[in-house]
Amino acid sequence: MTAYAYLIIAIVFEVVATSALKASEGFTRMVPSIIVVVGYVATFYFFSLVLKTMPVGVAYAIWCGLGIILVTLMGIFLYGQTPDLPAILGMALILIGVCVINYFSKTIVH
C-alpha cells in the first residue's frame, strides 16, 4: 500500500474515534468508549506506517486538515451541529492549504 492509502485509513479511524468520543459521554458509555480506544490505536498504527515514507509535517497537515473537515461533517450528520460562516470559511482555508501542500510541495512523496 502507498503512504496515501495508509493516511486515508488513519484519517477514517481518527474521524470514527473522535465522533465516538462525543457519544461516549466522558467514557461513561461502554460501546462508544471501546470504539474510541480501538479507533485511536488503529489511527496511530496506520499513521506510523505513513511516516516511514512521508515527512511528518506534511503527513500531519494532511491528517489534521482532512480530519477537521470530516469530523465537522460527522458533527453535522450525527449531532446536528451546524458550523457558522466563519467556521466554514476557516475550514475552506484549511482545505486549500492541504491542496497546496499536495500539489506544490517538493517535500511530499508522490
Rank of each mutant, 00 (worst) to 15 (best):
I88R: 13
T2M: 10
Y4R: 03
P32L: 08
A61S: 15
M91G: 15
Y103T: 06
S24F: 02
G67E: 06
A23F: 04
H110Q: 10
G67K: 06
V56M: 15
G80K: 13
L49I: 07
S105G: 10
V98K: 12
A17T: 10
F46E: 10
T72D: 02
N102D: 00
I76W: 14
P86F: 06
V98I: 11
A42L: 15
I88G: 08
M1L: 08
V109A: 11
Y103C: 04
Y40Q: 02
I96F: 15
S33R: 10
T28L: 08
P83V: 07
S24E: 02
A17C: 09
W63L: 05
C99K: 00
G97V: 03
W63T: 00
G65T: 08
V31F: 15
A42G: 15
P55W: 07
G97F: 01
V98Y: 08
M91C: 15
V41K: 01
P83I: 08
V100R: 01
M54K: 01
F13Q: 13
D84Q: 15
F46R: 09
P86T: 06
I8C: 11
F46S: 07
L73T: 04
A3Y: 13
V58H: 09
V15H: 06
V38W: 03
G26F: 09
Q81W: 02
A61W: 08
M91F: 06
A17N: 12
V56W: 01
S48I: 06
Y60L: 02
A5W: 11
I69S: 14
H110S: 05
S105E: 12
S105M: 08
T72K: 11
Y60F: 13
V41C: 13
G57V: 00
V50C: 01
K52T: 04
I8S: 14
P32M: 12
L21V: 13
Y103I: 07
D84N: 15
I35L: 14
Q81D: 15
L7E: 08
I94R: 05
A10Q: 12
Y40K: 05
F13L: 10
I8N: 03
F27Q: 11
N102W: 00
I108R: 15
I34H: 04
F44N: 14
A3K: 03
L70E: 05
I68G: 03
A20P: 08
A92I: 14
G26C: 07
G26D: 08
Y40I: 12
I69H: 00
L73S: 03
V15N: 05
I69K: 01
I11W: 04
W63P: 00
F104G: 05
S33M: 04
V41T: 08
I69C: 13
V56R: 02
Y79M: 12
L95W: 12
S19R: 11
L73F: 14
L49Y: 04
A59K: 04
G26P: 11
I8K: 05
L21Q: 09
V12Q: 03
G75I: 10
R29S: 01
T107Y: 11
W63A: 00
A20R: 09
A5P: 00
G75F: 10
F46L: 12
A42W: 06
Y79N: 12
Y4A: 07
V71L: 10
F46N: 13
A23T: 01
P83E: 09
Y45L: 14
T53N: 06
L51N: 08
H110A: 05
I62R: 08
D84C: 09
M30I: 14
I96S: 10
S19A: 15
M74P: 00
F13N: 13
T53P: 00
E14D: 14
V37S: 02
F44K: 01
V41W: 05
